[in-house]
């Protein structure tokens, strides 16, 4: 993609986003247009997570940011290094995050001390393509190494084991505690063409229900793991059966890059611009939360 195409893409994305904002305004939702009218790639956004206390964290090109008020106000969190595009919350943790990025490996970040600890030394390389925290075990973490496979640690990074060579093309991975697994939960991977899922024994990867376009993000409701959200760049979908069937719930518009769901069921989407939208009705309507 050359610069011109890229610019065109961003312009198109900005237009879609404006449309979405206008749509929301028309629907009577409160908006914060100032927050979302900047579609400069410098402000690219990568990841959004919610911890057990409902605090949101987002990773953007300008670093790590935190919001304790449902995304209305954000403050920067100084983290050494800048290549952290992936975020994951150790199960139940309020004071720690796992961070990672392509070429950057994986670190555990202590929010109280500001200390960053490299926990990826046991991996063969730093070409991280996706990162997922276990839904209930704080020391269990999954890492996709591009073209290599899925690695797992059960001791917060002291030792890693390659669990699977399949699904090495996953670009997103989440772990959920949906019941019915032979072990402790399920893994959902976004591959270039499909969402795939497997019990966390890595036994059988099967297809989740199809979406009209490749997915850009996926998340589950921690208080009701059968409820899942997925986004394509244009649309948000919900599943009430662990990803077997998806129903379009809204047009968030303009490039959803990540989704986070809090324990109270509030759904947040991170837009490519860094803006965060919030839904209190399981994705049906959205309001701008902040940027």
């Amino acid at each position: 993609m050359n610069r011109r195409e890229r610019t065109n893409r961003w312009t198109a994305a900005a237009r879609r986003l404006m449309a979405a904002v206008m749509m929301m305004a028309a629907a009577g939702a409160s908006t914060a247009t100032a927050a979302v009218n900047d579609a400069d790639p410098q402000h690219a956004a990568f990841a959004l997570v919610a911890n057990a206390a409902g605090t949101l964290f987002k990773a953007t090109a300008s670093g790590l940011h935190r919001s304790a008020d449902g995304g209305i106000t954000w403050t920067g969190v100084p983290v050494p290094g800048s290549a952290h595009r992936f975020l994951a919350v150790p199960a139940g943790a309020r004071d720690a995050l796992y961070l990672g990025g392509p070429g950057a490996g994986i670190a555990r970040f202590d929010l109280t001390t500001g200390q960053l600890t490299d926990i990826g030394k046991g991996l063969p390389n730093a070409e991280l393509a996706a990162l997922a925290a276990h839904a209930t075990q704080p020391d269990t973490l999954y890492a996709v190494l591009a073209g290599d496979g899925i690695w797992r640690t059960q001791d917060a990074g002291k030792t890693w084991e390659r669990m699977d060579k399949r699904t090495a093309n996953a670009r997103r991975l989440i772990h959920t505690n949906l019941k019915g697994s032979m072990q402790t939960g399920w893994l959902y991977a976004i591959t270039p063409d499909k969402i795939r899922l497997s019990m966390d024994c890595f036994c059988l990867w099967r297809n989740a229900g199809a979406l009209p376009e490749p997915a850009s993000a996926i998340a589950f409701d921690p208080s009701e793991p059968a409820t899942m959200y997925a986004a394509t760049p244009e649309m948000v979908f919900r599943s009430d059966d662990g990803g077997q069937n998806w129903r379009r719930v809204s047009a968030a518009g303009g490039g959803v890059v990540d989704i986070a769901v809090t324990r109270t069921g509030a759904v947040f989407v991170l837009m490519r611009t860094g803006a965060v939208l919030r839904s209190a009705d399981r994705g049906a309507t959205w309001e701008a939360a902040g940027a």
Binding site: M182, C203, L204
Partner: peptide, 9 residues
């Protein structure tokens, strides 16, 4: 994928 299970499972 039988080999992916512990004896207990």
């Amino acid at each position: 994928h039988t080999w992916r299970h512990s004896d207990d499972e």
